[in-house]
Simulated assay, not measured.
Amino acid sequence: MPVRNTNPAGSSSALRSDVLRALGVVKIATADQIQRLTAPHLTYRHTTKPTARARKAARTSAYNAALTDLRRHGLVETGGWTRTGDALRTLTPRGLAAAAYELGRPAEEMGGTARAAAAAGGTHPLAVTETILALLRPAPNLDLVANEPEAARHAAQAAAHASPGLGSLSGYATEVPLPATGTWARPGRGGAQADLVLTAPEDDLPLLFVEVDNCHETAERLAAKIDRYARFFRRRVRDTDGQEQELWSTRWSGFSGLRRRSAYPPVLIVFNRVGARNPDLTVQRLSALTRPHWEGEDGYGGGPHAYDGKIPLVATTLELLRAHGPAGEVFHRFGRTAPQRLLDAIALRPS
């Protein structure tokens, strides 16, 4: 009885923990997105409900209960609404601290609450969350849909056996400051803010920066952000032994192999076709504008190109990423002619 009084919506502690972890990563999400991130098997339940709205309400009901209880505790709030009427959930400052604990991250690495973005409708943060879903590709537990109708079981099996995603939810971080001046906690001018950072060493991906564009930005504005990435990557600091090292490597420790490769970490640009700009034309122009940042130099004696101080730049669309995942040959590396798998596209040598 005391537990029910504390959490009147009846949510479990495990489910509330899942919600905090998800919102700690993505900052803004609908209940539907949180469910797809943390319990993908529920997507294949309640399929006999008569309408899509009824099916979504049924599979997200437990998450809405958890969000209600977390709101009662002052950890979550409704920051706005999507154009289709879904509530945008965000963390309060107290909720951000609770999410840091659940994720095992330092509080100073959590970023902000994204209240302003939610109030504006959150179209860009929601696209970032969809990009995480497309990269992560959460697979349903087939044992949990064993009693569902045949069509639902077959759909779940197709999802479970599709090409895998990259990493785990805890390996993703959003709205990450990349200070060219100042500190991590108080960035100065000239740096960037990454839409998404992924670390998945278990999948041979030590570090990946991701930018998501809703096809509203010009190639010139995107190129200016790549310039800021380059300034951040070049920034050097002294470690405790007095040795100079690049600032980025002090935060993403354990990936010293990247420096032996000589190139900077890769940046993936994901275009979400909601705006008026043609991503194919944007990529053509962006490739030309950023050539000094990505083009390798001729190797000695006609050997392989050298990529010291270069940024591997790769582009795709959210539509292609959803359909094929990271293992699909849908990633265009600037300077190469054919699309590749993501891990091949960011490799220094064409496969």
Rank of each mutant, 00 (worst) to 15 (best):
P2A: 15
N5G: 12
T6Q: 13
S11E: 05
A14R: 13
S17K: 10
V25A: 04
Q35R: 14
L37D: 02
A39D: 10
P40M: 06
L42V: 00
Y44M: 01
R45M: 12
P50Q: 11
P50H: 02
P50E: 11
R53S: 12
R53H: 09
S61N: 11
A66H: 03
T68R: 09
D69V: 05
H73K: 15
H73Q: 15
V76M: 01
T78E: 14
W81E: 14
T82M: 07
R83H: 10
T84N: 12
A87R: 13
R89S: 09
T92H: 08
A100D: 04
L103T: 01
E109R: 13
M110G: 02
M110P: 01
G111P: 08
G112V: 02
G112N: 13
A116K: 14
A117F: 06
V128S: 02
T131G: 02
E150H: 12
A151N: 08
A155C: 07
A156G: 12
A158Q: 14
A159M: 07
A162Y: 00
P164H: 12
L166V: 14
L166E: 05
G167N: 07
G171E: 05
E175G: 13
V176C: 01
V176P: 05
V176F: 03
L178C: 13
P179R: 09
T183F: 05
P187H: 06
G190F: 08
A194G: 09
L196G: 08
V197Y: 00
T199Y: 00
T199K: 03
A200P: 08
P206K: 08
P206C: 07
L208E: 03
D213I: 09
N214F: 00
N214L: 15
N214H: 01
H216T: 15
T218Y: 05
R221Y: 01
L222D: 02
L222R: 04
R228S: 14
A230P: 00
A230Q: 15
F232K: 02
G242T: 05
Q245M: 14
L247I: 12
W248E: 05
R251M: 04
S262Q: 15
A263D: 08
A263W: 12
P265Y: 10
P266G: 03
F271Q: 07
N272L: 00
A276Q: 10
P279A: 05
L281M: 01
L286S: 08
S287N: 08
L289F: 09
E295S: 10
G296V: 11
G299W: 03
G301H: 08
G309E: 11
E319W: 02
E319R: 15
L320P: 00
H324F: 13
H324T: 11
P326F: 07
F334G: 08
T337I: 07
R341S: 13
R349H: 15
